[in-house]
Design a protein around this nucleic acid. Structure first.
Length: 486
DNA sequence: ATGTGC
């Protein structure tokens, strides 16, 4: 990761908040706010992500602040872990502010099994999972689609998958947006994207995407854990995946067209990667329609993958793990833009919230929180790294007051892929994980080291910041026992 | 993240 040597000024607000003053760059329309403690802020200073927070603050129509969560790191235009809200009338949408993996997200599946029951069969379960979940770069998915079927997926998302027999209608009630963003327009999606998408539904991909079997290791909040159906020593499964090559192609197509139109729109941005489209322009509307197609593909994708997980558990545990007894706890997306309403300076304002590596965290009582969780808040799923911990939180009222209903999304990368590979070999990492009692199955062994725990910040430190800042509340900690990767 | 470069 490069360091320009330019020091972005930071003013401490309190133990968990830092301000980048608007005076730093004349083009900034709002200040920046960074959520971090003393240790994390030093790690964040190591790359260019603070400069990117300042750059995002120059976007036309940006409202309030350019925000950064404690897991931020350098990304395309926006930092990963960045949040920006733009006015729907005067503002823009920046495709790079959603990211290449449209609706990359996380779902958590409960089981009725305890660690004691799974322990002796972990290797067999790992084999079954690896077999049921197609993975790898460019890999084909569980289901090939005709173009007509892909169109249904683009418009209907996870509901299409449920109708096809992958999972249950109840799954949709605990999926963000019900597993379908409205306003999808397949005509705004290129034929190249469609060609890439038809073979990829129900596939894990590679990189930081994974399926992990985990144990509920520590309970921070008994009442909230009970409401989410989670208890100590329970075995659960996390799926982290997105829209594969399909969403990637949509992002690439619109980033390219946005870059070519900046002059026409009269924009002179400080970074060409921030290329953006007025929300009221035809191109802006086309991007949002295409982005919704990518998002819906990702929800259908995670729905198929979850079906594969339920099948794998059933194969190993029989009647002890019937699919209907493995309820979906929740599904969040952490790379997306949404039109939402917030009270800003006393007035209700409709804004386009860009969440790039950032998770929605609506508090108790919010109408978008499923009824069964309404009293505790929206579940927030935070995968850590494969060797340490992941976390479940619930949204807290502070998110509505401070961060456009948003919190962090993960541990956050601390070392580049190249630096990680230099620091440890895949073989040594595999041995380390096995020694910790974690069964690992990986499609491309060479890529494993890029995702080593040492490549990531400490997720526990990240979630402590958002907990203490009042954006979300800690509920449980999860410890990995099986890792399946692309 | 990614048919891992254009």
């Amino acid at each position: 990761m490069s360091d320009t040597g330019v020091k972005v000024p930071l003013q401490r607000i309190d133990a968990y908040r830092w301000r980048i003053p608007q005076s730093y760059q004349p083009e900034m329309r709002v200040p920046g706010i960074v959520y971090a403690d003393d240790v994390l802020i030093e790690q964040i200073r190591q790359d260019n992500s603070l400069q990117q927070v300042a750059n995002v603050a120059t976007l036309p129509g940006i409202v309030g602040y350019s925000l950064a969560m404690p897991d931020i790191h350098w990304g395309y235009g926006f930092p990963v872990g960045g949040v920006a809200a733009t006015d729907v009338e005067t503002g823009v949408v920046s495709p790079g502010g959603i990211g290449f993996d449209i609706n990359c997200g996380v779902r958590l599946l409960a089981t009725g099994l305890s660690y004691q029951e799974v322990k002796g069969k972990a290797d067999r379960l790992a084999d079954e999972l690896f077999q049921h979940l197609p993975s790898g770069v460019g890999g084909k998915g569980m289901r090939s689609l005709s173009e007509r079927e892909l169109r249904e997926v683009m418009v209907r998302g996870a509901a299409w998958a449920v109708e096809q027999g992958y999972g249950f209608p109840e799954d949709l009630e605990v999926t963000e947006e019900g597993g379908c963003l409205t306003g999808a327009s397949p005509e705004a999606v290129s034929t190249t994207a469609i060609q890439r998408g038809v073979n990829q539904l129900g596939s894990l991909g590679a990189g930081n995407h994974f399926c992990e079997v985990q144990v509920v290791d520590y309970i921070y909040d008994e009442e909230a854990a009970r409401a989410l159906g989670l208890y100590k020593d329970q075995v659960v499964t996390t799926i982290h995946c997105g829209s594969r090559g399909f969403g990637h192609q949509i992002a690439e197509d619109y980033i390219r067209v946005a870059e070519s139109k900046q002059k026409d729109f009269g924009f002179k941005l400080v970074d060409r990667q921030l290329a953006c489209l007025p929300l009221r322009s035809d191109l802006g509307k086309s991007y949002l329609g295409a982005m919704a197609c990518g998002a819906n593909f990702a929800w259908a994708n995670r729905q198929l993958l979850m079906h594969g997980v339920r099948q794998a558990f059933s194969r190993v545990f029989g009647r002890q793990a019937r699919p209907a007894e493995m309820p979906l706890v929740y599904d969040v997306c952490h790379n997306i833009a949404k039109i939402e309403e917030y009270r800003i300076n006393g007035e209700l304002q409709r804004v386009c919230v860009h969440r790039k590596g950032a998770t929605r965290a609506f508090p108790a009582g919010h109408p978008a929180v499923p009824e069964k969780y309404r009293a505790v808040g929206q579940p927030v799923l935070i995968p850590g790294d494969m060797g340490r911990y992941s976390f479940v939180l619930v949204g807290a009222p502070g998110s509505m007051e401070q961060s456009f209903g948003t919190t962090c999304h993960g541990a956050g990368r601390q070392r580049s892929r190249t630096a990680a590979k230099k620091a440890i070999s895949s073989k040594d990492l595999m041995a380390q994980l096995e020694a910790k009692g974690i069964a690992v199955r990986v499609h491309s062994k060479g890529l494993l080291a890029e995702e080593a725990p040492l490549a990531y910040k400490d997720a526990e430190q990240v979630v402590r910041v958002v907990h203490n800042a009042g954006l979300a509340r800690l509920v449980v900690r999860l410890r990995p026992i099986i890792v399946v990767k692309g």
